[in-house]
Design a protein around this nucleic acid. Structure first.
Lengths: 246, 246
DNA sequence: ACAAAAGTGTTTTTAGTACACCCATGT
DNA sequence: ACATGGGTGTACTAAAAACACTTTTGT
């Protein structure tokens, strides 16, 4: 039987506390979420980790995500604390080193984060207790470890809410993107279609987009313009909420 | 020198984890928040507590609030986790039993809740480490213990947000109330005046209010009607968001 | 030349804001 | 009788939704 990984020293982490991350990526064919295939388990799970004794929960989540994705800066948002004392019941780790078994046998209160990352910049990397790390289409996700399905559901709700009062896209799209791409992203997250013309007007009215001279090439049919986010205004909109400019 | 309280057994709580509650109440003359005066401290603080080993964080917050207010059912909402490793620096407890000193010397990650309670049903009760528990007008609150001012600020922001997509009032107003009272509540939370007629229309359109035959008595000038919330619809609006009926 | 996708502008509907008159009550 | 606050309805404005035609490009 294989062993649980040797984590140098569990004592470096705060007991009973974890972070779990719902990492969203976006591709033409849908909204993706990064999942880990647990060793000795049929189930997939959200990437997660523990909180260092001198670390903020945000730093812990960032660290975990950097390890799983290879990315530097990551857009993160805490959205809920999951603390049902029975949330991890029936999923006890029963193999590996005694210290590891004891650690994982703890009751954990987990802080849920969602992250928005550029899909094709991610180099998925399994952690020590998983043997695969891959993207899943959000609508194809099956049963997950413990309460991770609930966490995913809540993350999606939080992301949908964010869409209404904060800009989304800078972290999910390439630096240059077309309006149809941005619209597809919104439609995917919201789960419904939007009117092309109204959508474009609304986005432009927010004043966070810059149209480039360049158009997409090698594409069938009329070539769409490229856009990019105005970093300055985007950041401002994140902090102050979306408002029509003027 | 007085001693820190004897808490039966710190071991019954999860280490490093606390809950802090921003308890909002409403009175004619403004929005109130319940604060504790710490023993051996000039500073006031938010009511808070620790999380039992088999308790959800919601249950912990509820327990704390029941002890401080004497109330049964309390509307609670978690809104943020505060985890700066230095958040409680410079406020170490240096008196009392060694076990207590050690416990309070821990680094704490705290989960912020806000609560909405009926102001005049509350019987404020200090806890073991405080010698007063009273209402403060939100705009009169001075410096608070550690980062409690930040927590209060974030709670207010969260409450203002809630006002936009969820009903508020059932927990802050008496069972029967007048439209001007409800409006005052909204104006107080939002920090700006609202148009009387438009406000009334909007509230009624949400379909969560029921007008009673009864009118306020003994009042100068024209007597306003009493209203009450339709519990059923109120609850539904809480879950699904506010929408105009029909 | 045509099918498919993207650019753009106008109309309609709805929600939000502004505003004015009448009524009841205590002084 | 009058000052004050409360009940009610209408007109205006701005935002959101609905909608159609033209342009470009690859096949």
């Amino acid at each position: 039987m294989a062993h649980l990984p040797f984590i140098t020293d569990f004592n470096q982490y705060l007991p009973h506390l974890s972070v779990d991350c719902v990492v969203f990526g976006f591709q033409e064919n849908g909204l993706k979420v990064l999942l880990l295939k647990m060793k000795h388990h049929e189930l997939w799970a959200l990437p997660g980790g523990f909180v260092g004794r001198q670390e903020t929960v945000e730093a812990a989540a960032t660290r975990v995500l950097q390890e799983r994705t290879g990315l530097g800066k990551i857009f993160l948002q805490q959205f809920h604390v999951f603390s049902d004392p029975h949330r991890s019941e029936g999923n006890a780790v029963t193999e590996g080193e005694p210290a590891a078994i004891a650690w994982f046998a703890q009751r954990f209160i987990t802080i849920g984060f969602y992250a928005l990352v550029p899909f094709d910049k991610v180099i998925p990397q399994p952690d020590l207790i998983s043997d695969a790390c891959t993207w899943w289409d959000v609508s194809d996700v099956g049963p997950l470890l413990v309460d991770h399905h609930l966490i995913l559901k809540k993350a999606l709700e939080a992301l949908r809410l964010q869409l209404h009062y904060q800009p989304v896209g800078l972290n999910l799209l390439p630096p240059k993107f077309t309006m149809p791409q941005l619209q597809k992203l919104y439609e995917t997250v919201l789960g419904r279609t939007l009117d092309r013309r109204n959508f474009q007007r609304r986005m432009l009215d927010f004043g966070i987009l810059e149209r480039l001279e360049e158009r997409k090439t090698g594409v069938a049919h009329k070539a769409p313009y490229y856009y990019r986010f105005d970093r300055q205004r985007y950041q401002q909109a994140l902090e102050e909420g979306l408002e029509k400019s003027q």
